[in-house]
């Protein structure tokens, strides 16, 4: 078990990189997922079709395959995903700005995939608002956008937040795949580094990695439980 202490810096570095990709992917997925959710509940049929198509594709495809498409398809299209080299953001998240594009590719795959689930979590919240609320808003003459903004969304987030949290927890665990698609130094890839290259025994390394993931996911889960309890009381 001495590897946990001796190579703490490697674990810490892996933790930091995984945290970075998770924060960025969560942000991206929440934004994209919200857009897709609005499409899916829009009164305009073609927009609804786009939203539904998106969810059907990305919710039903293995993340590994999405990662393959990002890591091999984007270069084939001549893209290095340079649009993600966002000035300012790449100061904190240094991998966004590197010449090697794999961090950006993995991020894109994780965002595209997770956004489909975020969309469904948001939509389940919207569906939890009694239809009479939106009907009353429409009958007052509120437009679709006003209806969402002033009536439906303020009431739906309560029902969305717990499923959303589960989606983000799943995303954190899914991020373990990025090491297999060229991202060097995230939490799971450190296992490969420490065992194959440096010869440490696998189990202690795996325990170290697990602790790293648990540090991210357990507090998030506890936070969600608290919110759920508070809601139960409010009801």
């Amino acid at each position: 078990m001495s590897v946990l202490i001796d190579r703490f810096d490697v674990f810490a570095g892996g933790f930091w990189l995984t945290l970075q990709i998770c924060v960025l992917a969560a942000l991206g997925a929440l934004i994209l997922g919200a857009v897709v959710a609005v499409l899916r509940i829009s009164p305009v049929p073609p927009l609804r079709a786009v939203g539904t198509g998106y969810v059907n594709v990305f919710r039903n495809m293995p993340l590994t395959v999405v990662m393959f498409f990002a890591a091999f398809g984007l270069p084939a299209l001549g893209s290095n995903a340079d649009f993600l080299r966002i000035p300012g953001l790449d100061v904190v998240f240094s991998r966004l700005g590197t010449d090697l594009p794999y961090f950006r590719f993995a991020l894109i795959a994780l965002v595209l995939y997770t956004a489909a689930f975020v969309c469904e979590a948001l939509r389940s919240g919207v569906n939890a608002v009694p239809p009479g609320q939106a009907e009353a808003a429409r009958s007052l003459g509120l437009t679709f956008g006003q209806n969402l903004r002033y009536v439906v969304l303020p009431q739906s987030w309560k029902a969305s937040i717990v499923p959303l949290g589960s989606v983000i927890i799943a995303m954190i665990k899914n991020s373990a795949l990025v090491g297999f698609f060229g991202v060097v130094g995230d939490l799971s890839q450190t296992a490969d580094q420490l065992t194959s290259a440096e010869g440490y025994a696998f189990v202690p390394v795996a325990i170290g990695i697990s602790i790293g993931y648990l540090i991210m996911t357990v507090p998030l889960g506890a936070f969600l439980d608290r919110i759920e309890k508070r809601q139960a009381v409010a009801r």
Binding site: P130, Q133, S139, L140, G141, T143, V151
Partner: peptide, 22 residues
């Protein structure tokens, strides 16, 4: 938009009130 405008000129009262709960 045109339908929204028309609805704003027709008041509606529902069986289940449908007041905005929040």
């Amino acid at each position: 938009k045109a339908l929204a405008k028309l609805r704003s000129e027709v008041g509606m009262v529902f069986q289940s009130f449908n007041l905005f709960a929040h």
